[in-house]
Computed example of a mutant assay.
Amino acid sequence: MSPFGRSFADGDRIEISGAVIRLKVHARARRVSLRLDRSRREVVATAPSPRRLGEAAAFARDRIDWILARLAELPSALPLAPGARLSLFGAEVVLGVGAGRARLVKPDPDGPGQILAPGAGEPYARAVQRVVKRHALEELSALTAIHARTLGAAQPKIALTDARSRWGSCKPAVGVQPAVIRYSWRLALAPPEVSDYVVAHECAHLRELNHGPRFWALVEALVGDPAPHRQWLRLHGARLHAVGATEAS
């Protein structure tokens, strides 16, 4: 029995001093650890096996000051609700309510664009997110095609994720199977030069499956100095994960 007087299962959530802690089993983990999940605005306590979840919960309790400090650093959540404003690849859009299929209305010279979706609450938010993802897939695919062509590489398959800690990943081609590049759909919310950098970064992996000097030379040839874009993601990436989140009650 754990010090909490109960046993735990993978996926259980506990509350300590107002902070939500999610318990997770990860078979590859070597030890108990804590991780901040910015998009869900909670801390994940990971254990190598179910029998050590009580230990993970106790570790979270012992580190509650660290947990509260990390949660306090998170930017305010931006729920996807009517009236909210987003920036999609640098273009401002306002969320509104409209009948029929959720859709993006491109901006005109007189004002911002709109995302119109039916309903309210969580169904509305999911519909808006689908629109943003469709737009992200279109734009990121187009950028990928440009950079891959510049590098003389075959066009990879493109997929979207909502990864918590990576903005992109590249799986190399195997035999007749093409390479696969996965991007966080939240790159649609970043400045266009930042999302373009991430695309260039992953496309450079089509030629160099490492982060050595030749890899960075390819990135610089595609988008110039990557340092400002990397810094932007370090400083402001949490803001992208706050979009669509809700404040903890």
Rank of each mutant, 00 (worst) to 15 (best):
G54R: 07
D225Y: 04
L71M: 04
F4G: 10
L53K: 01
I158K: 09
L86P: 02
N210C: 11
L235M: 12
L80E: 02
A27H: 14
P118R: 03
G11P: 02
A190I: 03
E220V: 01
E202Y: 03
W185F: 08
L240V: 00
K106Q: 13
H236V: 00
T150G: 13
F4A: 14
G212S: 05
G175I: 03
R35V: 09
R52L: 15
G168T: 01
A127H: 05
T246V: 15
R85E: 15
V25C: 09
P213G: 01
R35F: 11
L160A: 01
V93N: 00
K106R: 14
V44G: 06
G237R: 02
A77S: 07
L80T: 01
P82R: 12
G168Y: 04
L233G: 07
G212P: 02
Y183S: 05
V105F: 10
P48A: 10
S165R: 15
A9Q: 13
A248D: 13
V105E: 15
T161A: 11
R134P: 01
R40E: 12
V243H: 06
Q231K: 13
A248V: 12
A102T: 03
L116H: 04
R126N: 10
D10L: 09
A56V: 01
H211K: 13
A29V: 06
S169R: 08
I158Y: 11
A9C: 06
R6V: 09
R63L: 02
S2N: 11
K133H: 05
L95S: 01
Q177A: 15
Q177H: 15
Q114L: 15
P192L: 08
P79T: 04
A60S: 08
L143A: 12
S17T: 12
W66H: 04
M1R: 11
V243Q: 08
S2L: 09
A145F: 04
P3Y: 07
R6H: 08
L53M: 03
V132R: 04
V199T: 08
L104Y: 13
L68R: 15
R28M: 06
I158N: 11
V25A: 10
K106H: 14
R51T: 10
L160T: 00
L80G: 00
P178G: 08
A120V: 09
P50V: 11
G96H: 04
G113S: 04
K106D: 13
L78W: 09
V105D: 13
A47Q: 07
R13I: 06
S184Q: 11
A145Y: 01
D37R: 10
T246G: 12
Q129M: 11
P228M: 11
H135M: 05
A227R: 14
L218E: 08
S39I: 05
L23S: 05
G119M: 03
R186H: 00
R164I: 08
I64R: 01
P213Q: 00
R207K: 14
G244L: 09
V93G: 00
L78T: 14
